[in-house]
Write a protein that binds this DNA or RNA. Structure first.
Lengths: 332, 332
DNA sequence: CTGAAAGCGCTAACAT
DNA sequence: ATGTTAGCGCTTTCAG
């Protein structure tokens, strides 16, 4: 350690930097002075190697360019920093294979814990063996097999509220559009919609994820004379594509077709009329995940818990029933 | 190393895992088998400690929730991974003090290089002493003091194209709105606008950054009877706030006021009419920054270089001159 | 209260 | 081709 410039032993420097044991004020001062002059910061790797303690947690998200996940990470990072932790963040780019790779790579860092939003339900198969005691908190999406601490939103009830709203506005049919039912969120939202008994007939189309997503099926349904009276997109990326499609087809919202979305984004309030949407408490989810992980890291006991956060639903103009115009009249 | 399960020495395991030296096929196989069974991955920290080589680069951005920076990081991460590098990503949350803290923390990791998008021009003061030989590539924003490798977009020329377009459409006055001229981007864009000689009278308002941003000054200018004929937002966050303000004031675009923005976002193509905007080549910028850093990491020679990437300008309806309607008529 | 020395998991020399 | 050993920078006993 170069900080022997202070003329003390390495042990003393270590003690000062970790405010350990009792170090005389003058010695401490000399050390701090040398540290300042040299611009020294401890080598965190060597530190962990010897002490066994990590102050490092790994974060795996499906896609960093998705504002929702970016916000999740950013919130997490701040919370972690306040607790003295560093974050190693990796994005799986919506690719299960890449997720598996990152998951394995991240173990090389020997993190004290992991927070992961999985690509799909098969997370458990991808969580490398030998992860041993490392605590894992899963957020947002629920793996097929249990055994993890869980933090997610109340997808079903929130989606059901939109479904009931559409029913009460008198919409007779609604096309629900999601990426893939392989993702628990999508599945839960769809289940919630179906569970909400009402006059509306719901039907779902899966369009796929990322670059592989195809709107063809939706387009042909909308071009059809007997097109649905409403659209409900189950995530904001889908919502955006769907909204552009509606515009391209020259359909007016809500006169020709009503429009609602899960995941509220800025643009939904900018367009006219603004879009009815479910807002997810992303920051809360990040905080909850962090707190859960902290608990796990300081005390390995207890069975995994599952926590559900409540979403906010905002009804806006895009799902308003046109006064005096029943859907049949227009279609005729 | 627990992989002595293979019945070989630690050195052989290391050689196999790094495909070093010559290892007999059967020994290699035995090692790989044991590694597989144990789910072992090397401790990257111990590895670096001994070898001195890092395969780690640090990335510092002002704000991860900004889709532009998130895309930058995501692109970077993919490029890094292909080259066998890991990334430690930190967000400064638009706070110079936090940036300084993160910059110093990140040194604890002893990264092989750093890519940073600084909060403001005073980066050099914040780059901790003792960063010694670590190569640094600065992207997007240009520090006041030089000496760094630089990758940015051609802010001035791109902004000038918008300025000339507004002039040729006959707009006599334009209020330019940016966060702060302390940020090089904003300064360069504003300089570019002024340098573009034309009939339009340009004026700038700085609204501040993040939560501290205040639109009051802009609002009073817009409420004024002699409000400007056009608005030009110098970044997408400002553009969004500005667009909402315009809507709140009941001004129609472009009939009452024209609207253009730097940084193209999805919503700009969704609103009606769509917004004239400058699109920045973020992915290209990430790739260029990465390549520059790789060069620096493998060969510390040469003087710092500066690279400018070209932006794409798309003219849309938000800046179209209303047929047969001169601004004066409407204001009267 | 301070220093000397061992050792964390790994790789680079060197020895076999 | 394989094994042995030293030591990277740090923290942790344990002596002084």
């Amino acid at each position: 350690m170069v900080a022997e410039r202070a003329g003390v032993s390495v042990a003393t420097v270590s003690n000062v930097l970790n405010n350990k044991a009792s170090v005389s004020p003058d010695f401490a001062e000399r050390v701090l002075k040398a540290v300042g002059e040299l611009g020294y910061v401890v080598d965190i790797a060597a530190s962990r190697l010897r002490s066994g303690r990590a102050a490092l947690v790994g974060v795996v998200v499906p896609d960093l360019t998705n504002p929702m996940f970016a916000t999740f990470v950013s919130t997490l990072e701040h919370a972690a920093r306040l607790a003295g932790f560093d974050l190693v963040v990796v994005s799986a780019r919506n690719d299960p294979a890449e997720e598996a790779d990152r998951l394995s790579r991240i173990r090389s860092w020997r993190p004290a814990g992991l927070i992961v939003i999985p690509c799909d339900g098969a997370l458990a198969e991808r969580l490398p063996i030998g992860l041993g005691g490392t605590p894992v908190v899963v957020a947002d999406r629920i793996p097929d097999s249990g055994g993890f601490d869980l933090v997610a939103v109340d997808n079903g009830p929130a989606a059901a509220r939109i479904a009931r709203h559409l029913g009460s506005e008198g919409y007779g049919s609604c096309l629900v559009v999601g990426t893939s039912l392989a993702i628990s969120n999508v599945r839960e939202r769809w289940d919630g919609i179906r569970a909400a008994a009402g006059p509306t007939y719901f039907e779902i189309v899966e369009i796929g994820i990322g670059d592989a997503a195809r709107l063809d099926a939706v387009e042909s349904r909308l071009a059809d004379a007997r097109r649905p009276e409403a659209l409900f997109a189950l995530d904001h990326v889908t919502a955006l594509e769907l909204y552009k499609l509606v515009g391209r087809l020259g359909l007016r919202v809500p006169a020709d077709i009503a429009f609602a979305g899960f995941d509220e984004m800025e643009w939904m309030r900018l367009v006219s009329p603004p879009v009815t949407a479910v807002r997810q408490p992303v920051e809360d989810m990040a905080h909850a995940a962090w707190q859960r992980l902290v608990k796990r890291m300081e005390n390995d006991a207890a069975t995994p818990t599952a926590r559900r956060l409540e979403c906010a639903v905002t009804i806006r103009g895009s799902t308003a029933r046109q006064p005096g115009a029943s859907r049949e009249d227009e279609a005729a």
